[in-house]
């Protein structure tokens, strides 16, 4: 299990658990808050939640693996989400995704070995007018052609080396 988890984050998680404990159906909101804090849900965090809410760990794990948003491994520094919604698909999203895979040398759902990028597919981002669309962290890039990809990636590579 990679690096050590920050104890301060567990303190914050404790407060979240206290806040939600008496709500009906507290598990998902607590897990969502935990993922915001830690960036993902390592088994230690799942265990902590299970104890805090007094439920079996297997239940937390079951929920964590059911929903695609819960991550059991940390993401890279930058998350690239390629819209694979219908509007983007018919306007060439697959080509954009293929180019990204090629440039990064990874498959969808994976992180580059240097930890700089995670590549993921997502559903309609709500800007079909700009199709095809990708989102890197919170920035949206629209009306893309596969040839735009290297330039966009370079921006993030430069930002890191700077």
């Amino acid at each position: 299990m990679g690096k050590k988890l920050d104890p301060k984050l567990f303190e914050a998680l404790e407060q979240v658990i206290v806040r939600y404990k008496d709500h009906k159906g507290p598990l998902m909101p607590v897990m969502q808050a935990a993922q915001d804090l830690f960036g993902y849900l390592p088994i230690e965090v799942q265990d902590y939640i299970a104890r805090g809410l007094d439920i079996p760990l297997v239940k937390v794990y079951g929920v964590a693996t059911f929903y695609s948003q819960f991550k059991l491994e940390p993401n890279g520094e930058n998350t690239i989400s390629v819209c694979l919604g219908t509007a983007c698909y018919v306007r060439g999203a697959q080509k954009v995704l293929d180019r990204l895979k090629e440039e990064l040398g990874i498959e969808e759902g994976k992180t580059t070995p240097d930890g700089l990028f995670t590549l993921s597919g997502t559903r309609c981002l709500g800007c079909c007018g700009l199709a095809p669309v990708i989102m890197i962290n919170d920035d949206v890039y629209g009306r893309l052609k596969p040839d735009d990809i290297p330039g966009i990636l370079d921006k993030y590579r430069r930002a890191r080396s700077a």
Binding site: L84, G85, T86, A87, Y89, R123, C124, G126, C128
Partner: peptide, 11 residues
């Protein structure tokens, strides 16, 4: 809003 190419409810 699950339809992968739609955003009525969101708007």
């Amino acid at each position: 809003e699950g339809d992968p190419g739609a955003f009525m409810d969101r708007s």
